[in-house]
Amino acid sequence: MAAGGDHGSPDSYRSPLASRYASPEMCFVFSDRYKFRTWRQLWLWLAEAEQTLGLPITDEQIQEMKSNLENIDFKMAAEEEKRLRHDVMAHVHTFGHCCPKAAGIIHLGATSCYVGDNTDLIILRNALDLLLPKLARVISRLADFAKERASLPTLGFTHFQPAQLTTVGKRCCLWIQDLCMDLQNLKRVRDDLRFRGVKGTTGTQASFLQLFEGDDHKVEQLDKMVTEKAGFKRAFIITGQTYTRKVDIEVLSVLASLGASVHKICTDIRLLANLKEMEEPFEKQQIGSSAMPYKRNPMRSERCCSLARHLMTLVMDPLQTASVQWFERTLDDSANRRICLAEAFLTADTILNTLQNISEGLVVYPKVIERRIRQELPFMATENIIMAMVKAGGSRQDCHEKIRVLSQQAASVVKQEGGDNDLIERIQVDAYFSPIHSQLDHLLDPSSFTGRASQQVQRFLEEEVYPLLKPYESVMKVKAELCL
């Protein structure tokens, strides 16, 4: 049975990233139509530049190519590739079939990587351009969430054990800070992308030097003109047959890092959902379990974690691919890159769409948070109580021993009897502590235990987050809708 299948058929496997999760716009960027249309555009740009620099290419040939950029006979191309065992030459023939007058000058002087690699770089750039505003929107939604809850005390956790208090907004800023680093890295790697350009079979530009009869300047002009037509500021000066596969490492490393950030955020949300302090959106008709109707599973956060793990592992592909590119190139890269580049971007696209949807509907339960604080705060307040007693004339050592005994009794009630923490009640009825009984409410005010959390939130948002989001103001209103 021949390899390949009808990918629109229910009898043929289709990647869930495309069929179930990723956005239509990201799927289109990695589609065959987008790819092969870009090949034709690159052939047109090459012909236009070659004509401008004096090669015998007519206006009629150029116009014929322009008129057929979208006229792609995919069936013919597939048949040609089956016959020739070469995808680029299959599309040269297919393009030439609908451009008979231009057929002889299509791909003039070029090698397969002229269309293959340059198209990949265009796709990487455009895919990054799709991700950047999506990530900015996630940051914006979380920034709104953090600002609104900047002063809401909550129990902090280290080692997932109760620690000092923080605020809900401050905790959210930990998430935002990681995503801001990801946004900066995505922008950097996007701006650092260079075009492969017009380089020939081993990167020496020998074929173009021959076409222009040894004119170095025209060869350099050709490279520059096509690079500018493709919208790049610069091209690699040095290439082998391909652009260095280190570029793929750079791009997928940034995406993998984004995956790590999203995994951490969504894990926190899942843990908070278990504590009943916070939940992701839950639709009115949504079913959490087929057997347990009360369940409210954090399905979206779980999906993000599941896909983020996949995204983090994909960076190993370009690392290994770059390491086995012998001399000017081997074909070890080809099949692998067809999979890992598309999957990385479709996965990143999915987790950003999902995280935006989550961040637009996060639900906080202040009463649950308050109750958990009441359970733990008495123990945390013991040092403040000791200091207040010393100020009232008591002995630190005597007070410490009193607190120690009462704390152990209260802990026994919590752990052995399943009761509430009654340390404060014990202190309130103990005559030894009568000098500070009137101060206990103040000493137990949760806001006095959150330090500068709310001020940190305000400063972080104003100095770091809002300036970073400013270039994306025009796209901030787009909502994230999930079908599944």
Rank of each mutant, 00 (worst) to 15 (best):
H7Y: 14
S9A: 12
P10S: 15
P10V: 15
D11L: 11
Y13K: 08
R14V: 13
S15R: 11
P16Q: 15
R20W: 00
M26Q: 05
M26W: 01
R33M: 14
R37D: 08
L44Q: 13
W45L: 07
A49T: 06
L53P: 02
G54C: 09
P56K: 12
T58L: 13
M65D: 00
K66C: 12
N68E: 14
I72P: 07
D73P: 13
M76R: 14
E81Q: 09
L84I: 06
L84R: 12
M89C: 07
A90Y: 05
H93P: 01
H93E: 12
H93C: 15
C98S: 12
A102N: 06
A103I: 11
H107D: 00
L108Q: 03
L108V: 10
L135W: 04
L135S: 10
F145N: 07
L152F: 07
G156W: 00
F157Q: 01
T158Y: 00
T166C: 10
T167H: 05
T167A: 01
K170A: 04
R171P: 04
C180T: 11
D182I: 01
N185W: 09
K199D: 01
A206F: 03
L209S: 11
L209G: 09
E220H: 11
E220M: 13
R234Y: 11
I238M: 08
T239Y: 01
T242P: 11
R245Y: 01
A256F: 02
A256R: 03
K264G: 04
K264L: 04
E277N: 02
E277Y: 05
E279C: 09
P281T: 11
E283Y: 06
S290P: 01
Y294F: 07
E302Q: 03
R309F: 07
M316F: 09
Q320D: 01
Q325M: 13
W326S: 05
E328I: 04
T330Q: 02
L331G: 04
D333A: 03
N336D: 07
A342W: 10
A342E: 07
T347Q: 08
A348K: 01
N357Y: 07
V363M: 09
V364S: 05
V368I: 04
E376C: 04
M380K: 06
E383K: 01
A388F: 03
K391E: 11
R396P: 06
Q397P: 05
Q397F: 02
I403G: 05
V414D: 02
K415H: 05
Q416H: 11
Q416V: 08
E425W: 14
I427Q: 05
F449H: 07
A453I: 04
R459P: 06
L461F: 07
L469W: 06
K470N: 14
P471M: 15
P471Q: 15
V475Q: 14
E481W: 08
